[in-house]
Amino acid sequence: MSNSYGTTYYSEAYNNREHQQNLKYKNKLKKLKKLIKDIVVENSALCDEVSRMQENLVVVKEERLMLLRRLCQLQGEVDLGTLCAKSQMGSSSSPVANSDTHTPKKSAKKRSSVETPDTKSKPKRSSKISKKVVQLIPLDVNGRPIFPISLGDLTVYSLGDVVTDRIAYHTEDLIFPVGYCSTRVYASLKDVRMKSLYTCKILDGGMKPRFEIVSDTDLDQPLVGSSPDECHLRLLATISPSLSSVFPKGADFFGISHPTIQNLIQSSPGTRKLINYKPQKFEISKSSDITETNPAGEEDPSLGFAALHRHYALPSAFVIKQEPSNHGLISFQELLS
């Protein structure tokens, strides 16, 4: 009996000790799992913070470039590339830049004695041709344009957002920002004698942008196309079959090719990421008139209402009616709805 009692005692003690060890390891395992979970959560939070700071850094860089371009507009400087290059240079490269600026002066003096006046005038002529004249527009305290921007018959209400991940949303010389919206006065679809307000919009159409022209007299039937020229050609053909032979100028009708608007779109964030787009050079107009119009656009029958009636013969009894008063026009909010 004593031997059996001893064996049961030792077996129970061994089982109790093993059970206590298991409980201790279970508690340690729980603590380790909790610690790992806390570390994973903290790591994910740090990763989110890093990605957020990187996005903010990209936005700040884009805003800095936009402010530099605004500064160029105010100071009347033309060569924006040199200013951007100077802004991106570090303090370590400043003495090298100063040394480089002294050496070209000597070489310029030597070249001036050899070059003829004809050779000097050639690059100046080419530079004037490649630059586009932009008009001064009102800006807010942050250097951003104040909407709406009125340019004659063209009024721009929104520049939209530049799309960088789809190649069809830009060409070598034009950018099609999603959300761009403008209005233009032209001949009505129902009566050529009447003026009508057309709303031009660029929408997200997937792989290709969607262009729309909507008349205030026919809001339910927008003229849709995959390019500005296609929309403009449909508008001309709808107004009159005789206008179908007119060469379309959709970018001019939308206003995205206007130098002032094109300069603003080019200054928007994200344009440096565009693959095929070649940045244009702009020159500030010396005229103090902010609402100065483009005479070439007004003389074009495909863009101007008065030019349309001047270039196309109309019956003698055909009288051009005046545009309706402001209270008779549909508000811009109704056009966008």
Rank of each mutant, 00 (worst) to 15 (best):
I239W: 00
I320P: 06
Y9C: 06
L235R: 07
R144N: 11
D161R: 10
S325I: 08
S87P: 02
P222E: 03
S11P: 00
E42S: 00
E323F: 05
P269R: 02
K190V: 12
S215N: 08
Q75P: 00
S2W: 15
G205C: 14
H311G: 05
I202K: 03
G328C: 11
V133E: 14
S87C: 05
K281M: 06
L189N: 03
I146N: 05
F247E: 03
A306L: 05
Q333W: 11
L235P: 04
E230R: 00
V78H: 04
I290T: 07
A237R: 04
R52C: 03
G328P: 00
A85W: 08
D48C: 01
C200M: 15
R166K: 15
S337N: 14
K37M: 09
K273P: 04
S87E: 11
C47Q: 01
L308F: 10
G90N: 06
E292F: 10
S188G: 11
I320N: 12
T183G: 02
D218E: 08
E77Q: 15
A306Y: 04
H309I: 13
T260C: 07
Y186A: 10
D300T: 08
S150P: 07
F332S: 02
H309P: 08
T119V: 14
T291C: 14
I167P: 00
K132H: 11
